[in-house]
Amino acid sequence: MLSSQRFRFDGESTDSETTMYPAPFRYHRAGSADEAISLLAELGDGARPLAGGQTLLVWMKLRFDEPTDLVDIARIPNLSSIEHDDHQVRIGALATHGRIAASPLARLIPIVHDCANGIADRQVRSRGTIGGSLAAGDPSCDWPALLHTLDAEVLCQGPDGERTIGIGDFVEDLYATALQEGELVTGIRFALPPARSAGAYVGFKRCAPAYPTASAGVQLTLAEDADTCADVRIALGSAGLTPIHATAAEAELRGQALNETTIERAAEAAVAASDPVDDQRGSPAFKRAMLRVLVRRAVGIAIRRCNGESVEHSHEYY
C-alpha cells in the first residue's frame, strides 16, 4: 500500500528500501480504550496503536517507522459497530473496509459502498480499518476523501477525555492529523443523508496495491423540482497534500439547475482547487484531467441515484 516515492527527498537516495522485517518492538494488547490510552501515555512517543496494521506494519517493514512499542487495540470490544438511527450514522474505528462494504449501511448509502469496496484488495479490506486509514493521514487514502464528502466528524478519545473533530480540521497536512499523543480515533459520525440525497465516490487506480491516481466524492441533494441542486458536498482524493474539500465547485452547483454547463463549471472549479503532485502515477496535468472526468462522473451517478436508480460502481482500473 505504500509508495516509496513519497519518502524520497530530492537530491537524496531512497534509503532503507530493501527491508522487510520491522525493527524489534514490544507488543501490548489493550482490553479497552482506556487501557490503550493509558498504555500509550505510559510508553511515550515510541509507542503506536495497532489496529488492522495495513498501513503501520508496512511502514515498519520498510523501516519508515520504528516504534518501540505497539499497543494492539484490534480486540477492544464495541469499537467496530456499524449503526445508524433516523438521523445519524456511526461507524466504530475498528470496522474493517470489508465489513463496511458488506454492511446494510453500505446498501443504504451507496457512496459508502463505492469507497469501501474499492480499497486495495480483498486481503487488505478484511484487515484494514476505517479508523486506521483516517489516522494515517495519507492524502491518497480513500476514507478521508469520502468522509469529507459526507462532512463527517471524527470521534477521538485521549488522556484528556473524549472530543469530536470535524473532518476538515482532522487532517492537517501530509501524514499529519489533529490527534494528540496518546489519542485514539474511536469512531466516525455523520448525518444520515436526507431524502432526495445521494452520492457517488469514484476513483481511478492502476492496480490493487496502488492508491488511486485520483478520486472524487460527491453527495448531492436535489430540490423538489428534481432538476435543481439543493445542496452538495464535493471532495477530492490524491489531489494534493490533504484531501480537498472543493467548496468553489459546490458553489457552482448549489441552487443551480443541474445540466452540462453547470456540472462542467463545477468540475472546472474542482480542478482549480486541486494541487496534485507529480509521481509515478502521473503528471499533475494528467491528474487534473482525470479529476475533471471524475467529478463529472460522480455528479452524474449521484443524480441517477437521487432519482432512485441503482448504480453499481467502484474504483475503476485503467
Binding site: 500500500m1 505504500l2 509508495s3 516509496s4 516515492q5 524520497r8 537530491g11 537516495s13 531512497t14 528500501e17 492502476r206 492496480c207 490493487a208 496495491p209 496502488a210 492508491y211 509521481d279 509515478q280 502515477r281 482500473y317 485503467y318
Partner: peptide
C-alpha cells in the same frame, strides 16, 4: 536523473493483474 529507481515497489511498478 541521479539514478534512484522510482518504480521499486509493486505499487509504483504496477505489474498487470487480472483486474487490468
Amino acid at each position: 536523473e541521479i539514478g534512484n529507481l522510482l518504480t521499486s515497489t509493486f505499487s509504483d511498478y504496477c505489474p498487470i493483474t487480472s483486474m487490468n
